[in-house]
């Protein structure tokens, strides 16, 4: 059991990295990775929302959608759960911890349209994961997201100082950099076998 969970974690974080191999959450990956602090803030916000959202949607799937044969409502209920969760988290954080709100506040609304969150919830259904597997998968997936984010942010901070050919300035060089990062992550693919 522990071995299986470790495999799920390793695979979600490195081998099938959410951003670099599965293309989930590319928008915030490219949009919020200009500065290291915002990359870190976004990563923690995603870690938090993704973990809670995947547990809640797992319960919704098991306790409501499957027993009542309402699986065609999956997309709509999941996205509503995520949207309300984000609202709730935002309100709670604002009330209880102004410091945390300062750090995460501006990222929270963006998370509703982060397809990695809905992606995790849907993949869990597709893979028919149990509770512990779901939890592991969500935490590892967001850790992988954060890892990719922080790496790209670090690279972009150095890129800002580099002399880049005119045609590649702006988004082009960021995409090529992300591509090379993704290439590097392909090296992990031999890591998990069997």
């Amino acid at each position: 059991m522990a071995g299986e969970l470790a495999l799920i974690a390793l695979s979600a974080m490195l081998v099938n990295n959410f951003v670099l191999a599965r293309f989930l959450g590319v928008c915030p990956f490219l949009g919020v990775s200009r500065k290291m602090d915002s990359a870190i803030g976004m990563s923690f916000a995603v870690l938090f929302v993704m973990t809670v959202a995947s547990v809640v949607t797992w319960l919704v799937q098991r306790l409501v959608l499957v027993p009542f044969n309402l699986e065609y409502l999956r997309t709509i209920t999941f996205i509503l759960v995520i949207a309300s969760l984000v609202q709730l988290v935002e309100m709670v954080v604002q009330k209880t911890s102004p410091v945390l709100y300062q750090a995460l506040g501006i990222f929270l609304p963006l998370i509703t349209t982060n397809c990695a969150i809905l992606g995790v919830a849907l993949l869990v259904v597709q893979k028919d994961y149990g509770f512990l597997q779901t939890l592991t998968f969500a935490v590892a997936a967001s850790a992988g997201f954060g890892l990719a984010m922080v790496l790209l942010a670090g690279l972009r901070e150095s890129l800002a100082l580099a002399a880049i050919p005119r045609a590649f300035q702006g988004n082009a060089i960021v995409l090529v950099t992300a591509g090379i990062l993704s290439l590097a992550f392909m090296g992990f693919s031999g890591l998990v076998r069997g």
Binding site: L20, A21, R22, F23, P165, R166, A167, F168, Q169, G170, N171, A172, I173, V174, L175, V176, A178, G179, I180, S182, L183, M186
Partner: peptide, 16 residues
């Protein structure tokens, strides 16, 4: 996957 990022990056650079 890496090719997707790189191809879009090259297309943007080509456009510019």
């Amino acid at each position: 996957p890496p090719g997707a990022f790189i191809a879009l990056g090259l297309m943007l650079a080509g456009g510019t």
